[in-house]
Design a protein around this nucleic acid. Structure first.
Length: 296
DNA sequence: GGCCAGGACTCAA
DNA sequence: TTGAGTCATGGC
């Protein structure tokens, strides 16, 4: 194993610590570890698995890459990964301008300054994570995800520590149902996970082809999979496909935040939500994300 | 013990 | 197209 270091210039309106905070919510999590202002995780490159350790100084994000062999394209791929993960290449000053116009939420600009819409780069992982988290509490959702990752996710070791990736679709398809039941996945969730994995393996679903389609086509494509409903399609569009015009309608956290800041009903309907999001046209996903983050 | 949780599905009317 | 029932288990 060898290690090389590369850097990304931090954009304006960026705060590494705040971004890290989103990842550090006290849940059991095998897909990354946080310590000493560094995030470490395993990622899957075209040339194999790599470990990246992301930290920051005043001007840059610093990425240490550890891998058996590191070519030039691996460095580029790692920088691309982190750029996507932290949503680096987006100028969010337009969002902040809108936020300042809204008296109920203008304090977010200070409270959450520099926070980026942290992504889930791997589309398959994003979809599975949504299904796992549907209608169960997040603590338990993390627990059963960790069981799946620990048993079936590829990993590499660094300093005696294992770093896992989320399992690939062909792996998930071949896990027997009893094993998933034993991990306490419900029958419904098991079928939904199989459906997603089959869409990737048998029907050629992948992130690159989806990104070549319009946002509404992306939604239609995702909703064809049994187990993917409006909430999941919007969440994944926001976190993985990076469509900034998504709202997680029906989300309990979103309802809680809107009730808190705008005195809506406890579960506001579509019309109410759309009206409140209207000033944030083009930044709906960020507004949604900031509303979530403000509750943490 | 009861209600709720980062929902989505089926089925009836 | 809308509403009730179902899934399924941990956290509080």
């Amino acid at each position: 194993m060898i290690t090389v270091e590369t850097k990304i210039l931090q954009p304006k309106n960026f705060c590494f610590g705040r971004c890290m905070g989103v990842l550090d919510r006290g849940y059991e999590e095998l897909l990354y570890t946080l310590n000493d202002r560094t995030i470490t995780r395993c990622i899957r490159l075209a040339s194999g698995l790599a470990i990246i350790q992301v930290s920051s100084n005043d001007n840059d994000l610093i990425i240490k890459i550890t891998k058996d062999v590191i070519e030039r394209e691996d460095e580029v791929a790692c920088r691309d990964y982190v750029t996507d993960w932290f949503d680096i290449n987006r100028d969010i000053s337009g969002f902040y301008n809108q936020l300042k116009q809204c008296k109920q939420t203008q304090h977010f600009v200070d409270q959450l300054y520099g926070l980026r819409l942290m992504g889930i780069v791997d589309l398959f992982e994003a979809l599975c994570w949504c299904v796992i988290g549907q209608q169960i509490n997040l603590t338990f959702a993390h627990t059963i995800k960790a069981r799946l990752v620990q048993k079936y996710g590829d990993f590499i070791e660094l300093n005696g520590e294992k770093y896992h990736c989320f399992p690939e679709p062909y792996v998930v398809i071949n896990i027997c149902e009893d094993e998933l039941k034993h991990m306490q996945f419900s029958r419904q969730k098991i079928q939904y996970l199989y459906n997603i994995a089959k869409a990737f393996e048998d029907q050629g679903l992948n992130k690159e082809s989806l990104l070549n389609r319009s946002a509404s086509d992306q939604m239609k494509q995702l909703l064809l999979i049994k187990g993917i409903g409006p909430w999941t399609a919007n969440y994944v569009s926001m976190k993985s496909l990076r469509n900034m015009r998504c709202i997680a309608y029906g989300d309990t956290g979103l309802s809680t935040a809107l009730h808190k800041y705008f005195d809506t009903e406890k579960k506001p309907n579509y019309q109410t939500i759309d009206a409140l999001f209207e000033p944030f046209a083009g930044w709906e996903a960020y507004f949604n994300f900031y509303l979530w983050s403000s509750l943490a």
